[in-house]
Amino acid sequence: MPQEARAAVAVKKGAPVEVLPVLVPDPGPGEVLVGVQACGVCHTDLHYRDGAIGDEFPYLLGHEAAGTVEAVGPGVTALAPGDYVVLAWRAPCGGCRSCRRGRPWYCFDSRTAAQPMTLTDGTRLSPALGIGAFTEKTLVAAGQAVKIDPSARPEAAGLIGCGVMAGYGAAVHTGGVSNGDTVVVIGCGGVGNAAIAGSALSGARRVIAVDIDDAKLDAATRFGATDTVNSRGTDPVAAVRELTGGFGADVVIDAVGRPETYTQGFYMRDLAGVLVQVGVPDREMRVDLPLIDLFSRGGALKSSWYGDCLPSRDFPVLVDLHLSRKLDLDAFVSETITLEEVEAAFATMQRGGVLRSVVVF
């Protein structure tokens, strides 16, 4: 029998988020019901609210979540009630052409719950990134629930589910940062600082943080940045070249996702350098680059899908790094809030005042 839960819902494009009762089905085959303990407020949720990702309103927002399995459906053997999990928005199917080639982190048919969650009048909800976790309970595919060490508090652990994993993986997996590299990270929010931390842990010799907010740049140094550039009043490309002896960086990570920052990142690279885009752009954005520059500068331009991660492999690793005090997940948590404060958290995010607001249930 479906259970009723309170949830933060984007009812229509651009409208303030509403806290409404929703119906969550009992888990069917291959599904699990999770009691959400904490869920981060990610910029992607704001994109959903504003219609920048799709128009399948109403959206059940929230996807950076940790919680406890409450029930499992038929066929689920790897999880049991009481398991402490972080939710992932990529659950490899095992059968698509990418999975069959041994690249499950690129799975082209990622699993989500088959049954929809609904408003009490039966209106089907579209769960953000296939999760929908700004709610007391959520229904996901079993592969989306990754069991982790229960020693990590949910406010911090849940952030692995998106922002931290995306940024860390953009550096470590997509960018391939290694010993001695020089790295630039543009945008020092949650994703950017995770990329900085990942670069530092991978042995980067120099990590240059670029942002327009001095407070975020100060935070970036705590995650491992060796140099900072405030691009509000400075040409960041020129500044990076000055810091690198005129050459540019081996790896540049754009954690903003705007045409301006992507173009800056392109020209911040050394010859044969790598540019990684991990910031989520608006659907209307375009980039215009001279084709001769694409050819003559060489290297690689990459998009990082979820940090090219395999959640079942990587989430426990990040938790272990946190528990061994090598990756401070607690430092990403700027504030804890209630479900009713999600809309206010979006406004705070847009002002640049936080790394992550986290809803605690």
Rank of each mutant, 00 (worst) to 15 (best):
F332T: 13
V184W: 00
A78N: 10
I212Q: 12
A5G: 01
I212C: 12
T348W: 10
Y267W: 08
L87A: 14
V333D: 06
R49Y: 03
E284R: 13
H63M: 13
M349C: 08
L87I: 14
I53K: 09
S110L: 14
I212P: 13
T112G: 05
G353F: 10
G28W: 03
L159S: 01
V184Q: 00
G187W: 03
Q115M: 07
D45F: 09
L323C: 02
G246P: 04
E341Y: 00
A194L: 14
L61G: 01
L201Y: 03
C188Q: 09
P127L: 15
V76M: 10
G122L: 15
P150W: 06
F223E: 10
A114L: 04
D50T: 09
V207E: 12
V317C: 13
N193C: 11
D227R: 03
A114Q: 06
L321D: 04
A15L: 10
G67K: 01
A345R: 04
T244Y: 02
E341W: 03
K137W: 00
A344K: 00
E341T: 01
A157D: 10
P281S: 13
D227G: 04
H47W: 11
W89G: 01
L217W: 08
A209V: 02
P259Y: 12
L327A: 02
P127F: 15
H63G: 07
T228G: 04
G175V: 09
A347S: 11
A195R: 06
S98P: 05
G307T: 14
D55R: 00
L139D: 03
V69E: 07
Y59M: 12
G167Y: 13
S312L: 15
L20T: 01
A141R: 03
A194S: 14
P81K: 10
P236L: 14
V183E: 01
L20H: 04
R222I: 05
M117V: 09
A65K: 03
A219W: 09
G161E: 11
G203W: 09
D328L: 13
P2Q: 12
L321K: 02
V22I: 15
P154N: 02
F295S: 10
G73R: 02
I131A: 11
T118P: 09
I53E: 04
D330M: 15
T120I: 12
V183G: 11
C107R: 03
V317R: 15
P150G: 10
S202Q: 07
P29S: 10
T338N: 04
L23S: 11
T44F: 10
T263F: 08
V11A: 11
V280M: 13
I208S: 07
G62N: 09
A347H: 06
T112N: 11
